[in-house]
Design a protein around this nucleic acid. Structure first.
Length: 931
DNA sequence: GAGTTTGAAACT
DNA sequence: CAGTTTCAAACTC
């Protein structure tokens, strides 16, 4: 049938699980699978339904979070399908709301109790508030739209399309509400408001929370209601403006997107796409509307950035870069409507995601929220610096890989921006494609989009993407492209069901050639035996469906086999939670323009391969080497022999860092900023992830500090460094070497952000620590099953954490942490304080978390105590130097999140039914048994 | 284009 | 955890 070798599918384990395919498709393959796998997947329903092809890598394979989100408490509802009002969805959403509302209540209570003492504690609540807010957003959006505007309830989310169209207004409304609310809810806000910068976020969070409560059916303040009504009015106005807008056609498409949405209902990508779309639209149409509030704009702007980051689901740094870049670009291009984009996007995204279920919306909102949580700092300062497009934060297969370093995402991004204007969605996308050297594919996809009915949807997506394209990662584009291609193929096949056949029809060679010609534009797989459901397959590994360019045989990595893909993915993740985590992380994100210009920071050295390579013969000089392939230098995590990686030898890794840091003091402010960025990036580097504990635990600054003050020349290739270990919570690093110290310090800073740590290890401990330091932001990932630590989810979390303000956004999970008796400052805190005093590190961190760090309560010790591994954390020595040397050069404005660690486990339970997690786990077990 | 080499992923 | 096998990409001819 579809697959040449159905009977033998190498996927047994993976495929088998897929036996339960989504009802949607009964492809021969599904039958095949069902036959093959003795095991029936109860779970399947959860997963399957909606991936639609377009989902970005993370989306495509429903990461646990997605799944969980999708998972109706009941069982398999295909959310995507129910665009019309689903009672079920409503009910579910209602349940979810209840839990959320309860959570909020708790949080509120906590806040009151804590009062302003503990900003951290407050933040968590705020975060929850954020969640609520986001949750509420959809509703508002819906309401905004039409007559529906009357209903504030999230439950009423039936009109997705409309809401999407009007999304912008909705979001805005929310914000305005937030303001009002904030005014009234001085208490909650106060805490947050302390930090001026954070203030904005605070508004978002708190007000939202309140709203949520209202929605929850609990007391709704009149003021709030008024606000809502006002909001609606605004939204209505907005709509009017939109109608006028020439791009309305696009919006209409968005409506048409229902089908599209259905296709990919739970996928975040959808949201992204819509968001992007919204942005575009907003940029064009909504400008007037936004003019009203400057503050709001700023907030939205931030949000928009965050959102973008989420979409990629990749490592913060990178995401940051993208986000910032995008935002900047967007802003530059479309100055008139900076805010609109973000808010609108959100609303749109939420609405579009799954009209069927408010719950889904919530999920989406959560994700958005998470995105929003991204630090503002990145907004402006960071110009696009994609020093390493090479798939940082993404799988090697990501488009970035294809892009030459020189060209970098930056170039493409800029081009896209330039081209983008009001119209430019398409042009932008195209531009990006060009930059990616993927023109053919992109153009193809676009063409297709324009042609068919589905195409409308696709087109909308495309446009959306385009809109965001400049800012957003190319990955999205790629995924889109893939989906588009898929759709196209489907059309071609006209439901034959043998998509694979169709795809395969193209001579692989041609495809390959095409790819090669395009200089690796979109790298695609050529799998023959793996059915593209193993990590051997680059596409699969990257979390994307195989597409036209692929020359794979018997491919199951297609939207048609979504369930199979998901199952397989789960299996793999069960074995290795980080299996789908981005291989390459780009720590350096926002490098000040100056520094970038200098070119110092462009070096790939900043990026690292998560696990490192294991090259024996290639000396890391060929593409056999994943590090080399990703255009990144080897690092501690690498176990390569005779490393000669041109992007950075393993041995040189630390040396470079040391030098850089050392020089910081001497360097100009700009340089310093750049270094900070570097440091930040380093922190973000997955290498630093450690399953074990937060680095804070370790404190011995003096001890660690080398005379040179920095890193020793030597690098420790110790396996410990291997990022992969993180998930396993293996032995903590014990080495005291300077390099280690450096890393640890970095880790300390980054700890919160590191998703891996979060999940896999003692989430509790870590989380608790983090909470203290920075409230964990909530994030869609929260919803994810606790059982699975999925990289993407993690990524999202990390993003949230990264956000300087993320602390503010902590979710309910944070509540738990808060309560945790953690404590005393760790040495790291001290270090940080010193730095702060020096004006160095703190500057970097300061904006968001300084208080946290300073805060007497410290997660660090708690962490230490709690961390079983007892991982030693070196004091932020280097950081300190950096900070001191930099003396006040904080200009970068970037905010580093010291702590925030997403609270996976805790959050999951709260938001998501544990049953899901259990379920997932049981599934895994089943899979394992199968295997 | 076929065959070889390489290293990651998967398996035992 | 280590060793082996499988796999697909990278590379060579």
């Amino acid at each position: 049938m579809d697959s040449p070798e159905p009977t033998k599918s190498p996927i047994p384990s993976s495929a088998a699980p897929s036996s339960s395919f989504s009802p949607v498709q009964e492809s021969p393959f599904s039958n095949f699978v069902s036959n093959l796998s003795p095991i029936k997947h109860d779970k399947v329903p959860h997963v399957a339904p909606r991936f639609l092809g377009l989902s970005s890598p993370p989306l495509v394979f429903t990461s646990p979070r997605i799944n969980t989100l999708k998972r109706p408490q009941s069982s398999n509802v295909e959310v995507s399908q129910n665009v019309k009002g689903d009672e079920q969805s409503t009910n579910r959403s209602g349940d979810l709301e209840r839990s959320v509302s309860e959570l909020h209540r708790e949080m509120i209570v906590d806040i009151k109790e804590d009062d302003t003492k503990d900003s951290m504690s407050v933040q968590p609540s705020s975060s929850s508030g954020c969640v609520d807010e986001y949750l509420a957003d959809p509703v508002e959006a819906d309401c905004v739209d039409s007559a529906y505007s009357v209903n504030l309830n999230l439950k009423q989310s039936n009109n997705v399309p409309e809401s999407s169209a009007n999304g912008l207004p909705c979001s805005k409304n929310l914000e305005s509400v937030d303001k009002h609310y904030s005014g009234r809810e001085a208490d909650a806000v106060q805490l947050l408001s302390r930090q001026s910068e954070k203030g904005l976020e605070t508004f978002d969070i708190e007000p939202l929370r309140i709203k949520e409560d209202q929605h929850g059916g609990q007391g709704i303040s009149d003021s709030c209601q008024q606000i809502d009504s006002d909001m609606f009015d605004l939204s209505s106005q907005e709509q009017g403006s939109k109608n006028l807008n020439p791009q309305k056609g696009v919006e209409d498409d968005g409506y048409g997107c229902d089908g599209f949405l259905q296709l990919q209902p739970g996928s975040l990508q959808m949201v992204q796409a819509y968001e992007g779309f919204a942005e575009n639209v907003g940029g064009v149409t909504d400008a007037p509307f936004y003019d009203t509030t400057h503050d709001l704009e700023a907030i939205e702007h931030l949000r928009g950035m965050s959102r973008r980051c989420l979409q990629f689901g990749e490592p913060q740094p990178e995401s940051k870069a993208n986000c910032s870049g995008s935002s900047n670009l967007v802003n530059d291009v479309i100055t008139s409507v900076p805010l609109a984009t973000s808010s609108k996007t959100e609303s749109l995204g939420s609405s579009h995601v799954d009209s069927s279920t408010s719950r889904k919306r919530r999920l989406v909102n959560l994700s958005q929220l998470a995105v929003n949580m991204i630090p503002q700092s990145y907004d402006n300062r960071s110009s696009l610096t994609v020093s390493k497009p090479s798939g940082i934060g993404l799988h090697l297969n990501s488009i970035f890989n294809a892009i030459p370093t020189d060209q970098g995402g930056t170039v493409s991004m800029k081009l896209a921006v330039d081209t983008m204007g009001t119209e430019g969605i398409k042009s932008a996308s195209i531009t990006s494609c060009q930059s990616m050297e993927n023109m053919e594919n992109c153009s193809d996809a676009f063409e297709k989009v324009s042609t068919a009915p589905q195409d409308r949807t696709l087109e909308a997506k495309v446009s959306t993407i385009e809109g965001s394209a400049a800012s957003e990662s190319l990955c999205t584009m790629e995924s889109i492209e893939c989906h588009m291609t898929v759709n196209r193929k489907r059309k071609l096949s006209s439901g034959d069901g043998d998509i694979n056949e169709v795809f395969n029809q193209q001579s692989p060679k041609n495809k390959r050639k095409k790819l090669s010609d395009s200089d690796e534009g979109c790298k695609r797989c050529n799998c023959k035996k793996s059915k593209c459901v193993k990590l051997y397959c680059d596409c699969f590994a990257a979390g994307i469906y195989c597409a036209e360019p692929c020359s794979c045989q018997g491919c199951f990595n297609r939207p048609e086999y979504e369930s199979t893909v998901l199952e397989t993915r789960q299996q793999i993740e069960s074995r290795n939670p980080l299996a789908f985590a981005p291989k390459i992380v780009q720590p350096v994100t926002e490098v000040p323009v100056n520094s970038r210009e200098d070119g110092n920071w462009k070096t790939p050295s900043s990026a690292r391969h998560k696990r490192g390579c294991n090259c024996k013969r290639s000396m890391c000089l060929k593409k056999y080497c994943e590090c080399y392939q990703a255009n990144v230098g080897c690092s501690i995590g690498c176990r390569c022999e005779g490393c000669k990686n041109v992007y950075g030898k393993k041995e040189d890794y630390y040396v470079t860092e040391a030098i850089v840091k050392r020089g910081v003091g001497e360097l100009s402010e700009s340089t310093v900023a750049a270094k900070k960025d570097f440091l930040h990036s380093e922190l973000c580097n997955p290498h630093y992830l450690t399953p074990t504990t937060p680095s804070f635990e370790h404190s011995d600054p003096g001890k660690n500090a080398s005379a040179s003050g920095l890193l020793p020349m030597r690098c420790l290739p110790s396996p410990e460094s291997d990022p992969t270990n993180v998930s396993l919570a293996k032995s903590p690093r014990t080495s005291n070497t300077n390099d280690m110290l450096l890393e640890t310090s970095k880790e300390n800073l980054y700890v919160g952000s590191h998703r891996d740590k979060i999940n896999y290890n003692n989430a509790d401990n870590i989380l608790a620590d983090d909470c203290h330091q920075t409230p964990l932001p909530n994030h869609p990932s929260i919803i994810i099953d606790s059982s699975s630590s999925k990289p993407r989810e993690l990524t999202n979390l990390s993003r949230l954490n990264l956000g300087p303000r993320s602390g503010c956004f902590t979710l309910g999970g944070s509540l738990r942490w808060r309560s945790s008796p953690i404590t005393p400052k760790s040495p790291i805190d001290k270090e940080l304080q010193q730095l702060d005093s020096d004006g160095g590190l703190y500057d970097i961190l300061e904006d968001d978390t300084p208080e946290m760090l300073k805060d007497t309560s410290t997660p660090l010790k708690s962490v230490k105590a709690s961390s079983p591994n007892g991982k030693r954390v070196s004091p932020p020595h280097k950081l300190h130097q950096l900070g001191s040397s930099s003396s006040g050069s904080l200009r970068s404005g970037r905010k580093f999140m010291l702590k925030a660690v997403p609270s996976f486990p805790p959050l999951t339970p709260c938001i998501v039914s544990k049953g899901n997690s259990n379920e997932s786990r049981s599934n895994y077990e089943e899979d394992g048994s199968k295997d």
